[in-house]
Simulated assay, not measured.
Amino acid sequence: MNYVRTGMLLAAMTALFMGIGFMIGGQTGMLIALLIAGGMNIFSYWNSDRMVLAMHHAQEVDERQAPELYGMVRTMAARAELPMPKVYVINNPQPNAFATGRNPENAAVAATTGLLNSLTKEEVAGVMAHELAHVKNRDTLIMTITATIAGAISMLANFAFFFGGNRNNPLGLIGSILMMFLAPMAAALVQMAISRTREYAADRMGAQICGNPLWLASALHKIAGGAARVVNEDAEHNPATAHMFIINPLSGQNMDNLFSTHPNTDNRIAALREMASEGGFSEMRSSGDGHFGVRETSNAQPQRDARRPSGPWGSAGNTGQRRGGEQSGRDEPRKPKGPWG
Rank of each mutant, 00 (worst) to 15 (best):
M1L: 15
Y3I: 15
R5Y: 07
T14N: 11
M18L: 15
I20F: 05
F22E: 08
I24C: 09
M30R: 11
L34M: 11
N41R: 11
V52A: 08
H56M: 11
H57A: 14
A77P: 01
E81Q: 15
M84Q: 14
I90D: 04
A97H: 02
N106P: 06
A108P: 08
G114W: 05
L116E: 05
N117M: 09
N117W: 05
E122T: 06
V127W: 03
M128C: 01
T144D: 05
A147H: 02
A152S: 08
A160Y: 03
R167W: 12
G172S: 05
G175H: 02
A186D: 00
A186V: 01
A188E: 13
R196V: 00
T197W: 08
M205L: 15
I209R: 00
C210T: 13
P213I: 07
W215A: 09
L216W: 02
L220G: 04
H221K: 15
N232M: 08
A235Y: 00
A235C: 09
H237G: 12
A240N: 13
F245E: 07
I246Q: 02
G252H: 01
Q253I: 04
N254W: 08
M255Y: 14
F259E: 05
D266R: 11
N267P: 03
N267G: 12
L272R: 00
L272Q: 04
S277A: 13
G279C: 00
G280F: 02
G280P: 00
R285V: 10
G288F: 10
G290A: 09
R295A: 10
E296Q: 14
T297M: 04
S298M: 12
R307N: 10
R308Q: 13
W313M: 04
Q321P: 00
G341N: 11
